[in-house]
Design a protein around this nucleic acid. Structure first.
Lengths: 112, 112
DNA sequence: TAATTTTGCAACCATATGGTTTCTTTTTTA
DNA sequence: TAAAAAAGAAACCATATGGTTGCAAAATTA
C-alpha cells in the first residue's frame, strides 16, 4: 500500500535547493515573491518556480497572489509526516545499540 | 556550503523501496541476506542490491559478509541528521500558526 | 497609452535514477 | 569433484529530474 502523499513529501525535501528555499521562507519575517526568492539563487527564475511548485504541491509553501506578484509563505505543518516517520526509529540511535553491535559483541564473547 | 553527507541521507530515504528495505531490517529480529531481502520485493535482486548499496553508503545498513552470503543489519543512527533537521521546524506546526495564518488573520481584522 | 515588471507556459536538453538482463566469480553442498 | 547457490559486475534502457531559453500574458508605472 503505497502512501503517495508521504512519498511526495519525502521527495520534496530530498533536494537541497528546495530545503534552502523552504528554510529561507521560514526565516523570512515577511512573505517573499517568486523573484525575491529567485534572486538568492544562482539559477534561473524558472528553475526556482519549478521547485516552488513542488513545495506548494506538498503543502510546504502557501502562495497568495497579489497583483502581478505571488507571495510565498512557508508552512512547516506537513513536516509532521517526516517527524512521525523518523521518530519511530529514535529508540535505536538513542540506545546507541543496534543489531550489528549486538552481533559483534556476542561474537567477541564467544571468541570466534 | 553544501552538506554532501546530509544531502545523501535525504536522498537515500526519499525512495519508498529503500524506506521499506530499511524498515524490514529494523523489524527483523535477525540479519537478512541480500536474497532474503530481495525475495520480499517484486523487482529483481540486482535492483535491490543497488538500493542496499545506497543505504549502506549513508550508513543506514551495515553489511557483514559470511561465506558466500552478505548479512544486512539496519543502523538507524544516521537518521539523527533528519531528526535534527525536522525538529528545527517543530515549533511551527506545534503552534498550528504560520506566517500565512498570521497574514490572513491580520487581513480579516483590517477588513480589506 | 506605452514601457516595464512579474510571472506562466512550453519546448528543449543533459544527466540521474530505478529498473532490467546476462555473465562471471566465489562458496557451499550433493 | 560437479552442481547449485549467492552475490557482484557490466551493459543497457526508459523515464524522471533539474536545469535552460524564448515568448506570451497580465498588472503596474511612467
Amino acid at each position: 500500500m503505497p502512501n503517495k502523499k508521504r512519498d511526495n513529501i519525502f521527495r520534496a525535501i530530498a533536494d537541497p535547493t528546495r530545503r534552502e528555499i523552504f528554510h529561507m521562507l521560514v526565516l523570512a519575517s515577511a512573505a517573499l515573491s517568486i523573484n525575491e526568492i529567485a534572486d538568492h539563487f544562482p539559477m534561473s527564475r524558472q528553475a526556482i518556480t519549478k521547485h516552488i511548485k513542488i513545495l506548494n504541491d506538498v503543502g510546504l509553501i502557501d502562495i497568495v497572489p497579489k497583483g502581478r506578484e505571488r507571495y510565498c509563505y512557508a508552512d512547516p505543518k506537513p513536516l509532521k509526516e517526516i517527524h512521525d516517520w523518523v521518530m519511530y526509529y529514535e529508540k535505536f540511535w538513542e540506545n546507541k545499540l543496534n543489531l550489528l553491535d549486538s552481533y559483534l559483541k556476542e561474537k567477541n564473547k564467544k571468541g570466534n
